[in-house]
Design a protein around this nucleic acid. Structure first.
Lengths: 223, 223
DNA sequence: CGAGAGACCGGATCGATGGTCTAGTAAGTG
DNA sequence: CACTTACTAGACCATCGATCCGGTCTCTCG
């Protein structure tokens, strides 16, 4: 009786704590090692308990992913209105800020890139997408949907590619290509040693320039 | 003795048969239901046998994915040389052809979009990437790496997004956004009813226009 | 104050999975 | 005919997501 350990005080496990711990676990050990059991253990509880707060493991991933989107700072609307009023290319700045922050957040949590193949309907993701739409509409683009679509596709794709490759740089992939330089000469010459940030900016520049051109032509469509 | 069933004739299980069956299984039932056991069963063998031909399940996925890339027709070099010689924008056509075929192949096998987060080092993928590089270099772009990077990111991202969303159109996502139209007005108005092909082409147009502009400015870099 | 309701917790367990161990059998080669 | 190589399968292991069932804590209402 006396030796019986005092029951631990009630944990009041909350969704927020679960999500925070899931992100920490993912950051530390990667997506392959996120287990309901492990997550529960880190929260000092049983795996079953998690299922009271969450319906499936996918819920945890959805929540963790939206938490990452929550880290993206949304440029202030005031700034946006100032810069886009005149119909110039001032809209480039807020778009670059949003997209850049978006990319940075995903890169800060590389696991997020590997679970991007799910509907992004969390409040944080929606808020950022809404801002993107509004900015592109305010900029006077006649095809804001296509523009938003292109931009988000570009970020997602970039992050997936970077995460995929930069983690494997230590493995023999460098030598692999060099050995086959006869079959893939252009690849072998340009393929490796990525300066990720610069390359990303350059490509984003292509996109924005193309949109700007479409905007100036008024129709919103490229010829 | 007589009743003992005749031993099945030797199957000569080959990698090709495994990969073909894996693709068929993935096409038919999705990535979640590809199991070594199921795959073995469809090949009328034991799951262990597969491991003689393949080291892990990931190998199967790598092979299946590269098989998808193999479906992409590579535009002929002759055509490419003809159209890119003069330094005009003739390079747009082969690039559009490659990228379009790339996208079509991935969409034909929607599961492929969800396993794009792995190094694409299969011979088929490499061959297409090599062609893309060569085309962009021949076109006179000073930053062919950034261009190739942008284009592949764009295809990958587009396919992931389309696959993610079009499968879920029947679910209540349409109503979900409409209910929240006050919080996400722009999204609710433009978000749904995607004309995927047109939107994709429009965005590809932005990219190509931006690259063309960079090419004309000679530096290969946008200001 | 006290009892019931509902929020919360966890051990045991289920079915399935990726992968390995061990023990083979068919076919080609000397 | 021996013997190596290519190939096959059953039993098995650890682990996973998820559920069952039996609890325990806390708050509310009489």
């Amino acid at each position: 009786m006396w030796s019986r350990p005092r029951k631990a005080p009630r944990q009041t496990l909350t969704l927020e704590r679960i999500v925070a711990e899931a992100v920490a676990l993912l950051d530390g050990e990667g997506v392959g090692r996120l287990t309901m059991r492990r997550l529960a253990e880190r929260l000092d509880t049983g795996s079953t308990t998690l299922y009271w707060h969450v319906r499936t493991k996918d819920d945890v991933l959805d929540l963790a992913l939206d938490a990452v989107f929550g880290e993206v700072r949304v440029p202030s609307r005031a700034t946006m209105d100032d810069t886009t009023d005149g119909g110039g290319d001032g809209w480039h700045a807020p778009v670059r800020a949003l997209i850049g922050g978006w990319r940075a957040a995903l890169l800060r949590h590389p696991w997020s890139a590997t679970i991007l193949d799910r509907p992004l309907m969390g409040p944080n993701a929606l808020e950022r997408t809404e801002f993107l739409y509004e900015t592109l509409i305010a900029a006077g683009l006649a095809a804001p949907k296509a523009a938003a679509y292109s931009l988000s596709n570009y970020v997602m794709g970039s992050v997936v590619m970077q995460v995929t490759w930069q983690d494997r740089e230590e493995e023999g992939t460098e030598g692999f290509l060099r050995e086959r330089a006869d079959r893939y000469p252009a690849l072998a010459e340009h393929g490796l040693d990525h300066e990720w940030d610069a390359t990303f900016d350059e490509g984003l520049g292509y996109l924005l320039a193309g949109m700007e051109q479409a905007r100036r032509q008024g129709t919103g469509r490229l010829p």
